[in-house]
Design a protein around this nucleic acid. Sequence first.
RNA 1: GGGCCCGUAGCUCAGUCGGUCAGAGCAGGGGACUCAUAAUCCCUUGGUCCCAGGUUCGAGUCCUGGCGGGCCUACCA
Length: 535
Amino acid sequence: MSQDRFYVTTPIYYVNDRPHVGHAYTSVLADVLAGYHRMLGIDTWFLTGTDEHGQKVQDSAAARGVAPQALCDEMAQQFRELLARLAVRSDDFIRTTEARHTSIVAKVLTRLHEQGDIYRGTYEGWYCSRCERYWTDKDVADHGGGRCPDQPELHSVERLAEENYYFRMSAYAARLREAIASDELQIVPVKRKNEVLGFLATGLSDLCISRNRERLSWGVPLPFDDQFVCYVWVDALLNYKSAIGYLADDDAQRERHAKWWPADVHLVGKDILTTHSVYWPTMLLAMGEPLPRRILAHGWLLDRHGGKLSKTKREGADQAPTRPLPTIDGLLDVFGTAGTRWFLATAMKPGDDTPFDLEIVRERVNTDLANGIGNTANRLLKLAGGACDGCFPQLGAGGEREHGVRDAALAAMDAARSLPDTLDVTAVVTAVRAGVDAISLYLSDTAPWKLVKMDDGRPRAREVIGWSLEALRLLALAVHPILPEKMSLLRGSLGMTGDLDFVSESEFGAVPVGARLGTPPNLFPRVAPDALPTA
RNA sequence: GGGCCCGUAGCUCAGUCGGUCAGAGCAGGGGACUCAUAAUCCCUUGGUCCCAGGUUCGAGUCCUGGCGGGCCUACCA
């Protein structure tokens, strides 16, 4: 699946929640995917932003006695700051309260209404006035009937009917099913695809897309009936197109949209798989727009007990954690931007959940970065300083061992090159670990530090150091998008100058003989156990 | 309730079509080396593969039933 452009999105983050590790995970993953594509010369657009409408925002703002917009401004800023600390550089950051977005939502709603895909209907159900929400018959029945499932002791529910607007989602179910089954819209990992197909098999009904303003005012008004605002998800999902100029008045904006749509990857958490793989695509089908190519549903980072890290509604917690739950600020304080990015990027294979705590992060950062890449860089440059006068030596033809080290490094290059197809960052990391191990082993076997002390050993020592340096340089290139700052430094120390050019630099032996090598850097200081905050 | 997913060494995880699959990394133990960030290299201790049945010559690997956990199940996102 070679491609000349790449459009990747994160979900837009809901401003009711403070930024947490989960947001950081998705953001770093998106940034890393975008980085690999850019490095490989693929024109890339990376979109993120905030989702700012809806019940919870309205409620939170009310609870704090501030205007919803003020709350959104404050929270959006917090998300921007998080991204900055993580060195995540998106090409755009959209907020759903921006006019460039709300105006497009209105246009889409108008069109769908005019073409008959939005109709007025009646919703009847059990309403809890205290929670200000409807519950399904089943939910209410499961809790004995007549009581609110959320607060059975305190709240009662009443039967209520209300006029609402519906999106004719059911009309597009068959086409969606076909698109997903055939991978026209690819959902990965496959188990998530199966989940969606299973959901579709139970039958799709139409989607209620309006909220009465009496209950919820913080939303985009329906252009054809201002008694209602638009259901938040319908509003939110459209950001993926509004941000790149869909239906914009300006020609240049619309050209941008034509360039970037359809999205290559929507990154989503497994909890919002349905909205992205059912609501969104059916909306697109109704709009007559191409479907996104891929939806990647990732898992969650869990606490040491396997429980959720953060979820607004979650009581529980009779367990006493032995360590503080990792917060994103805590991770950044202890491990810095590079360590945090490394952990997040390598935390899990896309799709699975994984438990973690600070000790696990410490082990991974120390093993891979301090003991691995960092120490290897340090020892090689020190050796080169002594044996090669700080200049990149002549490689020569090399023998079996040399070729083995080279091939290990080239394998990492291959993994990086195939990332646009696999989206598998962990595959690259695995190859890089193997490459670092190969260099260590090679050095142990050849012992250049002994060779330099022998009368005729110096040329061989230089050769060994040269092959090792080259292998390390390629490994550094392979993880460059994960650790851009550190790997830029290392790249310079290993003799490369000027702007990074992947095509030429991914060749083994790209460093000119005699290139000036840097002094041994301390790229990744190891993190001592007592550096972790105690409970 | 229904759909889907997960449960393999202390920890994080691999195990493709049932037949050396009982593995890797980290942690632990022993040794080596000393160029390097108490690093690196070699060797090594750990497992009723959640439980119970079943199919099979043979099952982490398939079937059934449990137990434990997760996500979704249209108005919280």
